[in-house]
Computed example of a mutant assay.
Amino acid sequence: MKIKKVIRRACMVSLFVTAFLVTITSISNISFADVRMWVDYEPVHTEKTFTQLKHRQSSLQKKDLNYLEPKKMYISSDEIEGPKTLEEAANLDKYPTSQVVATGYTAGVESTGKSPDHPEYGITFSGVQVKRDLYSTIAADLNVYPIGTILFIPGYGYGVVADKGSAITGNKIDLYFHTVEDVYSQWGKKQLDVHLIELGDGTLTEEELEELNETDALQVFRQQITES
């Protein structure tokens, strides 16, 4: 009898549950499959998904911070260590010095007696054209400084002996400038120590002079010279 009562109660409970589910599904339009998914749902997956989502959100936040606040880069003379003038870059301490009297000259009539329509206007004794650049053409006593000699003249820059002059003897040198105004405003006449960078062999070509002026390490200073 007890067994029959248990079976009867189980059947009634089963029928009640079935009737309840049928009522719920008909009212809420939820299927038995949806109910089954709810029953089989494991909360641990929700926790795992939430953790993954939280981690992903945190990663995105870090990426956003890196994007919004990138490392700042500055290019200025205040942050880059290095020489700021041609004289600082020349490392002159290792070169011998000698005292000279330096004057300025131009390619014009006032210095050479040649006008711009002269076929040899601006042509130096060495055959190269006068030039004011990183390495400028200068005149000297060729018995002291042969053609091709490179001097560093403080306040002027590198000078390459390319010319001579009747008044340029002994410890005198003449520095090329574009105009007479430049000679007076930028130089005049000075007595100073010059540095002997290289003693010339008596020759100088346009190609050699051009190669000197294209020295990569000195290009940053080129504007200082050509616009002075």
Score class of each variant (00 low, 15 high):
C11I: 15
C11E: 13
M12P: 04
V13N: 10
V13D: 09
S14M: 14
V17F: 14
V17M: 07
T18N: 06
T18Q: 06
A19L: 15
A19M: 14
A19H: 04
L21V: 15
L21G: 09
L21T: 07
T23D: 07
T23C: 14
I24R: 01
T25K: 02
S26E: 11
S26Y: 13
I27A: 01
I27L: 04
I27E: 02
S28H: 10
N29W: 03
S31M: 00
A33H: 10
D34Q: 11
D34P: 02
V35S: 02
V35N: 02
V35R: 01
R36V: 15
W38N: 12
W38F: 14
Y41S: 13
Y41N: 08
P43Q: 07
P43T: 13
V44D: 10
V44R: 08
V44H: 06
H45W: 13
T46F: 15
E47Q: 10
T49I: 14
T49Y: 14
F50E: 09
T51K: 10
Q52D: 13
K54E: 10
H55N: 15
K62H: 12
K62C: 07
K62F: 11
K63P: 03
L65C: 08
L65Y: 12
L65N: 12
L65K: 12
Y67G: 09
L68H: 12
E69S: 13
E69H: 15
E69V: 14
Y74S: 13
Y74P: 08
Y74C: 13
I75P: 06
S77T: 14
D78I: 14
D78W: 12
D78L: 15
E79Q: 13
I80S: 05
E81G: 10
G82E: 03
G82W: 07
G82L: 03
G82N: 02
K84N: 10
K84L: 09
T85H: 04
T85C: 03
L86R: 00
N91Q: 09
D93W: 05
K94S: 10
K94I: 08
Y95R: 01
Y95W: 04
P96D: 00
P96S: 00
P96G: 00
P96N: 00
Q99L: 12
V100R: 00
G104R: 00
G104H: 02
A107W: 06
A107F: 09
A107L: 07
E110G: 05
E110K: 05
S115H: 11
D117E: 13
H118D: 15
H118Y: 11
H118E: 04
P119H: 06
E120D: 15
E120R: 07
Y121D: 02
G122W: 04
I123V: 15
I123K: 04
T124V: 08
F125N: 03
S126F: 09
G127S: 05
V128T: 03
Q129D: 07
Q129M: 11
Q129A: 11
V130Y: 06
V130H: 01
K131W: 08
K131Y: 08
R132K: 12
Y135W: 08
T137K: 01
T137G: 08
T137N: 06
A139E: 01
A139G: 08
A140M: 03
D141E: 03
D141Q: 00
L142I: 15
V144L: 04
V144C: 03
Y145F: 14
Y145V: 00
T149H: 00
I150E: 10
F152P: 10
